[in-house]
């Protein structure tokens, strides 16, 4: 089976924007082992595209932040996790793009700039 056809099957596995277990079972039974692997990978990718992962340094700002992200990414599921190493700011991961506006990232950048411009003595 061609990759395009499997991708169409992935899209067909959804009912009202949610994965339909009956449809999935039906499709999975008709696929070969090789195609099933591609189908699973396609499902994982589709699920990943539906979600936005947000990392924040403190749990106290969860609720206020969630609203902001729901407005920013309408129709997408927001998953918030705590990452104390970020110190301040946050990190958003949408598909394969990562938007990092944390203090940790700033400090890492600063360190990289120092290492790049000055030789080890």
């Amino acid at each position: 089976m061609r990759k395009k056809q499997i991708n169409q099957l992935v899209l067909a596995s959804y009912t009202k924007n949610a994965l339909d277990d009956k449809k999935v079972a039906k499709i999975a039974n008709s696929l070969s082992r090789k195609d099933l692997k591609v189908y699973i990978r396609g499902l994982k990718l589709a699920e990943k595209k539906k979600k936005i992962y947000v990392a924040l340094p403190s749990a106290s700002v969860y609720n206020t932040s969630k609203k902001i992200f729901i407005n920013l990414f309408p129709g997408r599921q927001i998953e918030i996790e705590e990452d104390k190493l970020l110190m301040l700011g946050g990190r958003v991961m949408a598909d394969d793009m990562v938007y990092d506006f944390s203090l940790k990232n700033r400090l890492d950048d600063f360190l990289a700039a120092v290492e790049q411009n000055y030789d080890e003595e």
Binding site: V92, M93, D96, M97, V98, Y99, D100, F101, N105, D109
Partner: peptide, 9 residues
Amino acid sequence: ENPKVANVG
């Protein structure tokens, strides 16, 4: 001030 944008895989 803009966030650093990275492409991950």
